[in-house]
Amino acid sequence: MEGLKGNAGAYTNEMRHDHLITSKQLSRGDIETVLDRAAEIDEDPSAVADRYADTLLGLLFFEPSTRTKMSFETAMKRLGGDVVDMGSVESSSVKKGETLADTVRVIEGYADALVLRHPKQGAAQMASEFVDVPLLNAGDGAGHHPTQTLLDLYTIRENAGLEDLTIGIMGDLKYGRTVHSLAHALTNFDVHQHFISPESLQLPREVVYDLHQEQDGTQIREHESLEEILPSLDVLYVTRIQRERFPDENEYQKVAGEYQIDTDTLEAASDELTIMHPLPRVDEIAPEIDETDHAAYFDQAHNGVPVRMALLDLLLGGDDGGVRDD
């Protein structure tokens, strides 16, 4: 991405409308622009309350979603706009065999921007080639989830800062799209990344390849155990290990148990450790941690609204007051 277009004067010059497909397209400048705008909106949401009164956001969710879908809807409504929702796959034309390419071309005629979640990797990239309105990837299979990344980065910046950071990312790193997107985005900053997972759920080699293209190899480490690295972490980003990734229940229980944390686990951690999770969690973070100062995952989920408001503002906005100029 060559930039996200800004509504406020300070953001406009070098930016233009575009799609958001993967975090790889985001430069450090792009990321900081979104996070700064999100902070301004968080501070004073009323300043943007009616900015997009005539704007409609099209929601196309081919997979279930609670947080992402509701926070996009909330963000658009808090900006004064509204949403049009394709609804569930079962109730749409997709059930009749319509291609994704056709679906997005129809719905772009109803909306000013589209948000797409789809079970197939590359779906957002392909869909973006068929539409002229901005398209935001809200998750494409095991691929990417860049808007989640922006709210993750916002949360990290608020809690631990993005400079001289040591982060552990733990759980299902193979299929976890939030992990893939976050890892790419973090290469823009001075960050040491430690990836903790069972061998069968390590980062895809494609992601490791990209990380090594972007960053010194010493800043990327893979581990099978949290224990050895926990004391050095500023942030621990936990993801869910899904039962269906394992051939049988016993194997799942054995592996998943090693990647669960509770207050005993945290005795070895820094007092300043920030714990994050994209949610939903099952049992990988014990509820007793919710009440500690470590827990940032509910704030993280709440941050989805100001960050997505900022992103919509930057993608939809412009000196012409929200009308696309390309």
């Binding site: 390419a101 990797q121 590359g122 392909m126």
Partner: peptide
């Protein structure tokens, strides 16, 4: 799991790397 394996009107596209090829849609190398 790549969208190009579905029945979509899309032409496959691969970036050529020094030692292989990479799908422009799903990133598989």
């Amino acid at each position: 799991g790549c969208i190009t394996t579905d029945d979509e009107p899309v032409t496959s596209r691969f970036e050529v790397l020094d030692d292989g090829v990479r799908c422009a849609y799903c990133g598989t190398i």
